[in-house]
């Protein structure tokens, strides 16, 4: 198929080792070094690798500083970039996030929505499926590859790699980069990216209700957050043993 319209959802995530948590359990994203979520980046790579005559938009939802990940996406070869941003969206859980994104996506008539299988800050993997319901799209999670010429998708489930016919419109989540592909932005992409404008979409542009987005539209509430202190286990060290006796120690455990 040609001339498909593809939206790639990319997320700016804080460096997991440097993030702080506010007292009401929200992530304090300000002033924390951040990066493009690695799974979202994989989704972008799949979109760019399969681009041909397709149109690829990079879309993010977050504070204004999330423009950085969209700038990167343009450098990688995305055609246009949109940032859904506004105070009204703050504190959204997965369902409020998906509703907000769906409000934007449904205005723009996409055939495919690409996401990472999860984002490394929340790890919930919930937004894509919820997005599919709100958009009325099909869902293909844990994709490892897609073929937009023959319209097939391969998903990696626990016990099987499943190849299905790709029925449009659909949300696809990716769990690995395209096979054998390392995309490096070309100089032309880089220069043309600089000229492009990142369009910012606010609450008033979406036509959704206050009670459907942000903290008000959320169906879950974080009650408390605590730091996990790893349980200390007493480890028996076997140090300086020769290979054979080390191996015997393992076999002893196997035999129980």
């Amino acid at each position: 198929m040609s001339d498909l319209r593809i939206a790639v959802m990319v997320k700016q995530v804080p460096d997991p080792n440097l993030v702080e948590i506010s007292e009401d359990g929200r992530l304090m994203r300000e002033n924390v070094p951040s990066m493009i979520d690695p799974f979202g980046k994989m989704a972008l790579q799949h979109a760019i690798t399969n681009k041909c005559q397709h149109h690829v938009d990079a879309i993010s939802m977050g504070p204004m500083q999330a423009q950085d990940v969209l700038r990167k996406s343009l450098e990688f070869g995305a055609d246009d970039a949109y940032l859904i941003s506004g105070r009204e969206f703050a504190g959204a859980d997965t369902i409020a996030t998906a509703r907000t994104m769906a409000a934007f996506l449904s205005m723009r008539d996409y055939d495919l929505v690409f996401c990472g299988m999860q984002a490394t800050d929340g790890d919930t993997a919930q937004v894509p499926s919820e997005l599919a319901v709100f958009l009325g799209f099909n869902i293909y999670s844990y994709a490892t590859s897609i073929d937009l010429e023959n319209m097939t998708v391969t998903q990696s489930y626990e016990r099987a790699d499943v190849v299905s016919k790709l029925s449009l419109p659909a949300v696809i989540t990716f769990m690995r980069p395209p096979h054998g592909c390392v995309q490096i932005p070309s100089m032309t992409d880089y220069v043309s990216a600089l000229k492009k404008e990142i369009k910012v979409v606010g609450f008033a542009d979406l036509g959704i209700r206050m009670c459907d987005t942000g903290a008000k539209g959320s169906r879950t509430k974080v009650k408390s957050v605590s730091t996990i202190i790893p349980k200390k286990k007493s480890t028996e060290f076997i140090d300086g043993a020769d290979t054979v006796s080390a191996a015997s120690a393992i076999m002893k455990e196997v035999k129980g």
């Binding site: 790893p230 349980k231 200390k232 480890t235 028996e236 060290f237 076997i238 043993a241 080390a246 393992i250």
Partner: peptide
């Protein structure tokens, strides 16, 4: 630190 036996 989480192992029960650690072979070096």
């Amino acid at each position: 630190s989480v192992a029960y036996k650690a072979i070096v």
